[in-house]
Design a protein around this nucleic acid. Structure first.
Length: 463
DNA sequence: TCTGGGGTCCTAGGACCC
DNA sequence: TCTGGGGTCCTAGGACCC
């Protein structure tokens, strides 16, 4: 904890929803929900208009629809969020070279490294107001909530106190007065499980926590967590603002609207995910030794299996083969709702594949999952390279599942016919080995409230 | 038809080495 | 032959965060 209030935390208000409202004037002043729009989607961000109806982050989209049926449900445009986020981070970096982004919409700024004459409360307050104005300027009117305090913990708590569009400075020396009446869940790291353990021990507020001895706390929640909680409960926090963190793992996962039971389908999906992981590893100049798969069963029990190579890889075929091998040891007969592949144990160097695949612990199974480049797209079709598996294929207006065990390039054709009842959508595939079915979701880039195609209509029509 | 996706960190047990 | 630590690496699961 510092002597001066020189740690700033900035949080963009309802960020994803705010970007959508900025870019689509028709959404301003209306409830907007950004998140997964499929059958098993959850809410990432709800605009303040939607929050009035009880819509919250992490709530299932199904429930959000029930609470606020007239909201616009959007699946998100991450390139727009990233671009806006980068503009904000650039503003913060003008203020201080020490900026630590926590996510697209949040960052810490170390004001000790700014050119402020001092860090007295009036000085940092005026400075933060300037910063908020700059953020609004470069983002086309987005608002941010800011907290300033003597540590990361206090700054973060402060930014939460006056949302949205607020600014709170916690004067040095008043930290415990602020924290003591608050519920233990204000402390980062205290989630539902820890809160429940503490509750059973009669600990509800930070003041309660403050009076618990370190030994008791370690007994309750474990060594590392206990020490951390003990410090934060006394408002002691010396964590520095660190601008860059090393990546520890890279992973891709997906939850499917319908539980998977077909093992070859699962193998195909893992293969595709492995390809995405490999691509991202290479882009980042990374490779890793440990390949992990994640499998969530129909009843939500989550399993992981991992294997470690003698040397790092960034090769799609190797990651895919290991992932498929790990799946083989699992009983998935009850159905699988989520599959994922990750690589950890990262090295920032890429080594030539000196040993070929001979050293792989799981060198059985097919290795050919090379994927050809897709051809140029005709206007009414989407051409997809195909590995065994399942995929959502979409154009601007509709979407459908396509799955199969064939390989190669498949063309999916979309047609719109005008009828007295309105436009009718259809789609078909040119490979008899592939099957198709409509999904419950509209095309990912479309708002559900603006879609013109119902799943039923898509299902009833085919070429 | 409750419950995303991409991460981080911690714990605990077993293998193995000295 | 029995007793014993400590340290490191690996695996699996869980809590948490945004």
């Amino acid at each position: 904890m510092r002597a001066a209030a020189s740690v700033l935390h900035l949080d963009l208000d309802a960020f994803f929803a705010a970007v959508e409202q900025r870019d689509k004037p028709s959404l301003r002043g209306k409830p907007v929900v950004v998140g997964g729009v499929g059958g098993r989607g959850v809410v990432a961000t709800a605009s303040y208009e939607a929050r009035k109806y009880g819509v919250r982050s992490a709530m299932s989209t199904r429930e959000a629809r029930a609470r606020c049926p007239h909201a616009a449900f959007l699946s998100g445009r991450f390139h727009a969020y990233r671009a806006t986020s980068e503009a904000v981070m650039a503003v913060l970096r003008e203020a201080s070279p020490l900026v630590e982004p926590l996510s697209l919409d949040e960052a810490f700024v170390d004001l000790e490294r700014s050119d402020l004459p001092d860090h007295e409360v009036p000085t940092v307050t005026a400075y933060a107001q300037e910063l908020r104005a700059r953020v609004s300027e470069v983002t086309g009117g987005l608002t941010a909530s800011v907290g300033i305090g003597t540590s990361k913990f206090i700054a973060k708590v402060a930014s939460d106190l006056d949302k949205p569009d607020g600014l709170v400075v916690v004067p040095p020396g008043t930290e415990l007065d602020l924290l003591r009446p608050m519920h233990v869940t204000v402390i980062p790291g205290v989630g539902p499980a820890t809160a429940e353990r503490l509750r059973r021990a009669g600990i509800h507020t930070v003041a309660d926590l403050e009076s618990v001895s370190l030994e008791e706390l370690v007994r309750l929640v474990g060594r590392a967590h206990g020490h951390g909680l003990h410090e934060l409960a006394h408002a002691r926090d010396d964590r520095p603002v660190v601008p860059e963190r090393e990546t520890k793992s890279v992973s891709v996962e997906g939850t499917y609207d319908i539980d998977l039971t077909d093992r070859s389908l699962m193998a195909g999906l893992l293969t595709r995910q492995a390809g995405e992981v490999a691509t991202r590893l290479r882009k980042a100049g990374l490779s890793g030794r440990t390949v992990t798969i994640k499998v969530r069963l129909h009843d939500f029990t989550t399993l992981s299996r991992s294997t470690t190579l003698p040397s790092p890889t960034d090769t799609a075929t190797t990651i895919a083969r290991l992932a498929r091998g790990l799946l083989e040891g699992l009983d998935t007969s009850g159905g699988v709702r989520l599959l994922g592949v990750g690589v950890s144990g990262l090295a920032d160097w890429v080594q030539e594949d000196l040993f070929g695949d001979a050293d792989d612990p799981a060198s059985d199974g097919p290795a050919s999952d090379a994927v050809p480049e897709p051809a140029a797209l005709p206007p009414t079709a989407r051409q997809r390279t195909w590995a065994p598996g399942m995929d959502v294929v979409h154009d601007e207006l509709g979407a459908g599942w396509v799955w199969g065990s064939g390989r190669g390039v498949v063309t999916v054709r979309f047609e719109t016919r005008e009828t007295p009842a309105g436009p009718v959508r259809s789609f078909g595939v040119d490979d008899p080995q592939l099957h198709r079915a409509p999904t419950e979701e509209p095309a990912p880039q479309e708002s559900a409230t603006e879609g013109t195609t119902t799943p039923e209509r898509a299902a009833s029509e085919r070429t």
